[in-house]
Computed example of a mutant assay.
Amino acid sequence: MEFRRLIRGRVDEPQLERIGREIAKRYDRESVRISVLEADNWLSTPCVVDEEWFVKVISPQNALVQALFTGARNLGVFSRGEEGFFERFEDPLAMSQHELEATRRVREIGLNAPEPIEAFGVDEFGVLVLEYLPEFRTLDELPSTEVEALASELFSALTLMHANNLAHGDLRGENVLVHGGELYFIDATNVRKDGLSTARAYDIACAIATLEPALGANCTVDLAAEHYDAATLLAARDFLDLVRLRPDHEFEATRLKGEIERRAD
């Protein structure tokens, strides 16, 4: 956990105060109340402002970590003879602007996502403002019965993203919100068309890695097989070792690969 805190970093109180003043100015308020959410988020400091907006503050350290993670993940993709599809951003503002646009695209194709409001810079920070969803839970907080009931919706959403040249790229339990019994997606990304097939396989690998701890390998693969053919699942299997290298995914990779191979035979 200390390692996670080190690379995730935190935004200091004076910096949050400056950002709060800018938000108040933009929305014609004398002041705002910022509450920092406790979450193992590598690429931003997530906050709630006045119980009305969900705000992600992206620091230069977050941008550096994103660049390092992107390079490592693309290297893993290249080592499999595939074209890398993860995009590196120049600075925190570019990261926030990209997520704003990707969130708009998610909503345009008919999937649930918090309403994107704006992205702007404050000093060296990028600030993304989204609609705040009260009383949401994340997918990894749900009991296994609820996860199983939502798994089909998760795979269907990924299929719709991929059909519209979108990918998630960072699918994990904390990035799938459950509100009013429906899934809401955050942290999606745009990808190049020539990298979509690779991004698709990676997304599916992340999805089954996210579901396996709650459902087990057999049930997870059975549910995935209702949406994908054997060739697609085998392509996802090839990315499971890469997904396992991430510190925010803990799952039984060997069992998942075995179940996929059994079903493909």
Score class of each variant (00 low, 15 high):
Arg4Asp: 15
Arg5Glu: 15
Ile7Ser: 08
Gly9Arg: 10
Gly9Ser: 10
Asp12Tyr: 00
Asp12Met: 06
Leu16His: 03
Arg26Val: 02
Glu30Ala: 12
Arg33Glu: 14
Val36Lys: 12
Val36Arg: 14
Leu37Met: 13
Glu38Lys: 14
Ala39His: 07
Ala39Lys: 14
Asp40Asn: 15
Asp40Lys: 11
Ser44Leu: 07
Glu51Ala: 14
Val55Phe: 11
Val65Gly: 06
Gln66Asp: 15
Gly71Ser: 11
Asn74Trp: 08
Val77Ser: 10
Phe78Glu: 15
Phe78Ser: 12
Gly84Gln: 09
His98Ala: 15
Arg104Trp: 10
Arg105Thr: 07
Ile109Cys: 11
Ile109Thr: 09
Gly110Trp: 14
Asn112Cys: 11
Ala113Cys: 13
Glu115Ser: 12
Ile117Thr: 11
Asp123Arg: 08
Leu139His: 03
Glu141Leu: 01
Ser152Asp: 15
Glu153Asn: 13
Phe155Ala: 07
Phe155His: 04
Ser156Cys: 03
Ala157Met: 03
His162Lys: 05
Ala163Gly: 11
His168Pro: 03
Asp187Tyr: 03
Thr189Glu: 15
Thr189His: 05
Lys193Trp: 01
Asp194Cys: 00
Ala207Gly: 03
Glu212Trp: 01
Ala214Cys: 02
Leu215Ser: 11
Gly216Cys: 11
Asn218Ile: 10
Asn218Met: 12
Asn218Tyr: 11
Cys219Glu: 15
Asp222Gln: 15
Leu223Gln: 15
Ala230Gln: 10
Leu233His: 08
Asp238Gln: 07
Val243Trp: 01
Val243Pro: 06
Arg244Trp: 01
Asp248Glu: 13
His249Ile: 02
Thr254Glu: 12
Lys257Arg: 09
Lys257Ser: 05
Ala264Val: 01
Asp265Pro: 03
